[in-house]
Amino acid sequence: MTKRCVKVYPRFERLWHWSQAALIFFLLFTGLGLNGAHGALPFGPAVMLHTTAALALLALWVFATFWLFTTGTWRQFIPKIEGTFAVARFYAWGVFKGEKHPYEKIFWRKHNPLQAATYFALKWAVFPTIWISGIAYLTYNIWSGSVDQPVTWITVIANLHLLAAYVIAGFVIVHVYLLTVGHGFRSHVAPMITGYDTIDLTPEQEAYLETNEPGRLKPAD
């Protein structure tokens, strides 16, 4: 095993991550305004901005989903039980004892098991909830005539949408905080900006990259 500086986040993934982050912040801000939680924006413009940003995020997700499946990156997000407990134990206990983070990032697995499980839940439960409820919210007038109690429906939909938004806000808080745990904030954020992270490569992986994808490897020290 050799530690090498390898490009783990290709340009599209970084673009996806940061546009998604910006849109989520923007949607949370405009959305909470629409909900009445703050009054920083007039309602009308807030509706337009929220709708436009939501449509942009949906478009981004369409591209991201396509990318995940065509590149096989989707496998990175399949959660595994193995190692999850160790990571959880580290955050809850080991970190206070000065232990080392139990997960070592490897080439085909960018996320630690707890991270993967969180992203899995986010992608399969929370994000679908917010975009399905959001589209239903937006298209109320198209379907309201064909249900019995449109007011009840829209109330439930709006509440689910709001709740999902708050869950995402909770995720953002913990996500940002956990960047400070382990290797530290800078070393956690830097790969998502530059694309490169230092990881253990097997001789085979190293040889493969040297031969076939030399652009993904920074010269060895």
């Binding site: 009445g36 829209i154 509440n159 689910l160 709001l162 709740l163 708050y166 806000a169 808080i173």
Partner: peptide, 19 residues
């Protein structure tokens, strides 16, 4: 049903609790 008229519904309160 009026968006913006009731930020303190069940989802609003539960959501804020989560945050």
């Amino acid at each position: 049903f009026l968006p913006g008229s009731n930020p303190n519904g069940w989802a609003g309160l539960l959501g804020r609790l989560i945050v």
